[in-house]
């Protein structure tokens, strides 16, 4: 079972709208510190929407409205006096398609730190960030090269390094490996396992086996008749994959619908 006292992010009675459309309904869940939580479910079930509510990424979508609360370090990130930019520094995000800046590998890491007022040794920060994402050995001799010259898997690890460079406490990943080949995917999965020593991770994935392999907890979402996404069940990944409580979870993870 999850330990509520260990939650770093707690979502309470969350409803997320896009215009009139209710995309996620009455969601309650928590991310336990230094654990990996996987959000799974069929397409359109609101799992990415819920992920994006955790660092106010939905604010950037026109017509988006959030009701309910998301507590991070004891504070509701949707409070009026909270700066969403500061929220996103502490709760970083990695996307499905690797999206490095069209700049050098070095600059990809340095840029975020610099605009956040980083005063320390930039070379050191670049090196440690690349080491944390197991990329250093592969790129240390070509830091001035354009990041777009890297392979897709390397680009994705660079994006994770970039997120890590601003020292967040949570990393949100939206299908970080779905555009990658199996070897690059395995490297990302190993990396996630390393990163959870330092960070709390939430990951949206369509790959059920991936959720089974890398996560400690799994939250399963579905859509209701009005196409609103809702949380069906959340539990330890072992329990969800071995003996889920809800028949719908069982049917989905067994691939009986989706």
């Amino acid at each position: 079972m999850q330990k509520e006292s260990e939650y770093i992010i707690t979502i309470k009675n969350l409803n997320q709208y896009y215009g009139d459309f209710l995309a996620a309904k009455d969601v309650n869940l928590g991310l336990e510190k230094n654990k990996v939580t996987a959000l799974i479910g069929p397409s359109g079930c609101g799992k990415s929407t819920v992920l994006r509510t955790m660092n106010r990424m939905n604010d950037l979508i026109k017509g988006a409205g959030t009701k309910g609360e998301v507590f991070f370090e004891g504070k509701n990130i949707y409070d009026k006096n909270v700066d969403p930019v500061e929220v996103r520094r502490k709760i970083g995000m990695v996307f499905q398609k690797p999206n490095p800046f069209p700049k050098s590998i070095y600059e990809n890491i340095a840029w975020g730190a610099r605009i956040n007022g980083f005063q320390g040794n930039m070379d050191e920060l670049v090196e440690t960030s690349l080491k944390k994402t197991a990329l250093w050995e592969e790129v240390k001799d070509k830091l001035k090269q354009n990041a777009l010259s890297l392979s897709g898997g390397q680009q994705q690890r660079l994006c994770i390094a970039r997120a890590v460079a601003v020292q967040p406490s949570v990393l949100l990943m939206d299908e970080p490996a779905s555009a990658l080949d199996p070897i690059s995917t395995a490297k990302i999965e190993d990396l996630i396992d390393e990163l959870k020593q330092t960070y709390t991770i939430a990951i949206v994935t369509h790959n059920m086996q991936q959720a089974g392999r890398i996560s400690d907890y799994t939250a399963f979402f579905m859509v209701d008749e009005e196409r609103a996404g809702f949380l069906v069940e959340m539990g330890s990944t072992d329990q969800i994959f071995f003996n889920p409580s809800d028949k719908r979870t069982e049917a989905y993870i067994s691939g009986r619908f989706g």
Binding site: M208, G212, F241, F242, N243, E250, I253, S254, G255
Partner: peptide, 9 residues
């Protein structure tokens, strides 16, 4: 088929 849950059991 990578069975899980009830089917795996």
């Amino acid at each position: 088929e990578q069975p899980v849950a009830g089917e795996l059991r």
